[in-house]
């Protein structure tokens, strides 16, 4: 649900810019306005027809309010100099809060909210650019019952496999045809699998005489075949 916000990484570059360019002062009683803009996610328009009316801007937990205009911009009016936490609430989307500091000269600085290390300053651009972090997940996904879940359950597998061995294998052993077949399969398997020692020796020999490798392989394979045939005959 958290989309990494590259905006803030970029923001560091704009520190000087933000501090000097955005300076606004109301002549009346030294009251200031916090300005910003909310950037909706691309799927806003499909789900929420008028997200602007459903989105609220709270400063210091609702002490001051801002309403969102059609273009997504907002202004919070009439704030004395101080430090404010700006939060954006929408029933469907989560936004990251920002702290805006207005000094007595009317200079603005916006930074990330960090409650643990309160002195740490990661500057974000001002006027604020509030971007939805993502859709808020209020619900747990219900686990659905699927037959595969049951079958691939380790307990079930542990039960089914021994059952197979107990029930099926003895029957197969009784049947003469299958017996033959098994033997054949085993022969086949042995035929195809080269022996480990051969492989090693081949490898060692192959490093010196790569051209003879295939020949040797064939020889060793035929040797092995002979061995296994003997074994079967026994």
């Amino acid at each position: 649900m958290y989309i990494p916000n590259f905006l803030f990484a970029l923001a560091l570059l704009f520190v000087a810019h933000a501090e000097t360019s955005v300076e606004e002062e109301n002549d009346e009683n030294n009251r200031y306005n916090i300005e910003g803009r909310i950037f909706p996610l691309s799927d806003y328009h499909t789900t929420q027809a008028n997200w602007q009316a459903n989105t609220r801007v709270h400063v210091n937990g609702g002490e001051y309010l801002g309403f969102v205009k059609r273009d997504g911009s907002f202004v919070v009016h009439n704030l004395p100099a101080g430090s404010y936490v700006v939060e954006v609430f929408n029933p469907e989307y989560t936004f990251e809060p920002a702290r805006v500091e207005i000094n007595s000269k009317g200079k603005f600085r916006a930074r990330k909210v960090n409650h643990i290390r309160t002195s740490e300053v990661i500057v974000v651009p001002y006027p604020l650019r509030m971007k939805a972090l993502g859709k808020t997940r209020y619900f747990q996904v219900r686990e659905q019952w699927r037959i595969t879940d049951l079958l691939f359950n380790p307990m079930v597998m542990m039960m089914v496999l021994p059952l197979l061995f107990i029930m099926v294998l003895p029957k197969m052993m009784n049947d003469p045809d299958t017996k033959k077949e098994i033997e054949q399969i085993q022969n086949m398997a042995k035929f195809e699998l080269p022996e480990m020692s051969d492989m090693v020796s081949n490898f060692l020999a192959g490093s010196t005489m790569p051209s003879e490798k295939s020949e040797k392989n064939q020889v060793s394979a035929s040797k092995k075949n002979a061995k296994t045939r003997k074994r079967v005959d026994k």
């Binding site: 027809a49 602007q52 969102v68 205009k69 059609r70």
Partner: peptide, 9 residues
């Protein structure tokens, strides 16, 4: 829609 159009103090 109840969207804010303008605001001043």
């Amino acid at each position: 829609t109840g969207t804010l159009l303008s605001e001043w103090t």
